[in-house]
Design a binder for these strands. Structure first.
Length: 493
RNA sequence: GGCGCCAUCGUCUAUCGGUUAGGACAUCGCCCUUUCAAGGCGGAAAGACGGGUUCGAUUCCCGUUGGCGCUACCA
């Protein structure tokens, strides 16, 4: 039997990094076993599901280089891959459960259920469906339906014994049936809940390994009960740890950016995010040798995925929920950026959507890239670093008030710089010569370059820290550089 | 509260009974140096607690504590 795994996102919000993490594991497992990886959209929550969200999720996973063998966008032999398009199947299966006595119709109002829960809570009982509609006669059911009272279908759960199953990561798990609620399977709007749809589809799509988040462990008995009721062989189950916020709670957007869209927009390269996710599923992927391979983002993510797939071992996933450590992710981003050639980096910037200021001539951009890529982590760090090349700084006198150096000394150094820079004409206006000239200027003014260079930075870039100054000035050109020195001198008069 | 899962440096982790408990991020220091970075070198930093089992436990078992998850006509 060929291995088939799936990821089943619910399109109810922004694409979550946790979805990518689960998708990655499923994809790697399938790849390692020579199986298929399926993407199925679980849009049974009519109120919250949107098509935009679905598109964003697929797009984001693709951005990370993830690909599936079957899915709503590419079809496949087990389609449709969108649960909202499989309603008939759920209705039939619910009817079958009803007919065979594995489920029952429930006419309880939300108000009654709420009162029931409040009472149970007050009595320190776990909230549980109380079986109110469990023993309605066919006649009572018919009457209520004739009266137009809305109903749901609930799962019948054994009252004794326990459900025992094997988790691929955690081994034997035992949960007593009395702690399992009589879950709703079909909502009154005619749509299935996760539990029914998930089981029916996993069976229909011949999923062999259900690899999903840890939050599903306590629901697994319900799913197993459904497989048993239908007479189906259940798949193997594997519950992955949940990604955490730094405070260790489940990763949530209240406390952390969780949207892949966010990371993309901020300029986290896809290959770096993918690599980071890879380190979370197997520590052996925390290998700097993996950084930088490939000449385009597409090729880089493909190589990474190939490596992850080959190396993949379920047992290397540790079961403690890992903190989604943004500082480490950022470092990895910087690493990926730095391992590119300047030309590749330019391409990365372009793909990200960076638009060059017109003032920076195309032939100078590779030089800019070369010196800028050494000092950024995210692509969004690039623009602020190079904006001085397009816009003259708006200097204020106090910007020059650094290091308690008297203004006249600063002015002297700046004037000396101008004097030494003027002779540099034509090709002599280059990084090395500029450096020599500025060193001499500092000396002429009675300082070491080190002591006054910060003022030069402020004069040219408007900030005490920026790109390497000599390169910056070479790129800026002689005329504009001198103009900025002169402007700075004026400020000090 | 009930049920379940989990537990090594601040973080991600290695160790599959015997190690000076290793690496990476972050942090600190030094070097390099045109500021800031990057890079190089080095430092500090961990087995939650209590019982067992064993010649020997971070490793196996039990308990405690702690964290997390579930406890919906959301997934």
């Amino acid at each position: 039997m060929t291995v088939r795994t799936r990821v089943a996102p619910s399109p109810t919000g922004d694409p979550h990094v946790g979805t990518a993490y689960v998708a990655l594991v499923n994809s790697c497992f399938a790849k390692k076993q020579g199986g298929c990886f399926v993407l199925r959209v679980e849009d049974t929550d009519r109120a919250r599901s949107t098509r935009e969200s679905e598109e964003a999720i697929l797009e984001s996973l693709h951005w990370l280089g993830l690909a599936w063998d079957e899915g709503p966008d590419i079809g496949g032999p087990h389609g449709p891959y969108r649960q909202s398009e499989r309603s008939a199947s759920y209705r039939e299966h619910a009817a079958q459960l009803l007919a065979e006595g594995h489920a029952f119709k429930c006419f309880c109002t939300p108000e009654r259920l709420e009162e029931m829960r409040v009472a149970q809570r007050a009595a320190h009982q776990p909230p549980h469906y109380d079986g109110h509609c469990l023993h309605l006669t066919p006649r009572e059911i018919a009457e209520k339906e004739a009266a137009g009272i809305p109903s749901v279908v609930r799962l019948k759960v054994p009252s004794e014994g326990s459900c025992i199953f094997d988790d691929l990561l955690r081994g034997r798990i035992e949960i007593e049936w009395k702690t399992v609620d009589m879950q709703v399977l079909m909502k009154s709007d005619g749509f299935p809940t996760y539990h029914l749809a998930n089981v029916v589809d996993d069976h229909a799509m011949e999923i062999t390994h259900v690899i999903r988040g840890e939050e599903w462990i306590s629901s697994t008995p319900k799913h197993l009960l459904l497989y048993r009721s239908f007479g189906w062989t259940p798949p193997a189950f594997c519950h992955l740890p949940l990604l955490r916020n730094p405070d260790r709670s489940k990763l949530s957007k209240r406390k952390n950016p969780t949207s892949i869209l966010y990371y993309r927009k901020q300029g986290y390269p896809a290959e770096a995010l993918l690599h980071f996710l890879g380190t979370l599923i197997d520590a052996r992927n925390d290998d700097q040798g993996l950084i930088g391979r490939g000449s385009s983002t597409r090729e880089r993510t493909a190589l990474l995925l190939e490596h992850f797939g080959e190396q993949f071992e379920l047992t290397h996933i540790s079961v403690g929920g890992p903190v989604f450590d943004i500082p480490k992710l950022r470092w990895l981003c910087g690493q990926w950026i730095r391992r590119q050639t300047p030309a590749q980096f330019l391409q990365l910037l372009h793909e990200w959507g960076y638009e060059w200021p017109r003032a920076i001539a195309p032939e100078k951009r590779e030089h800019v890239a070369r010196v800028a890529m050494e000092r950024i982590e995210l692509l969004s760090d690039f623009a602020p670093l190079v904006e001085f090349l397009a816009e003259p700084p708006d200097l204020a006198r106090q910007d020059m008030a650094l290091q308690n150096l008297p203004e006249e000394d600063v002015r002297g150094a700046l004037e000396s710089a101008i004097e030494n820079l003027i002779p540099l004409v034509g090709d002599s206006w280059n990084q090395a010569a500029i450096g020599e000239a500025l060193k001499k200027s500092a000396g002429d003014a009675g300082f070491k370059l080190k002591d006054v260079v910060r003022f030069f930075y402020v004069a040219v870039t408007g900030k005490p820290t920026s790109l390497p100054l000599f390169d910056g000035m070479e790129i800026l050109g002689k005329e504009e550089s001198l103009r900025r020195f002169e402007l700075a001198v004026e400020k000090l008069h």
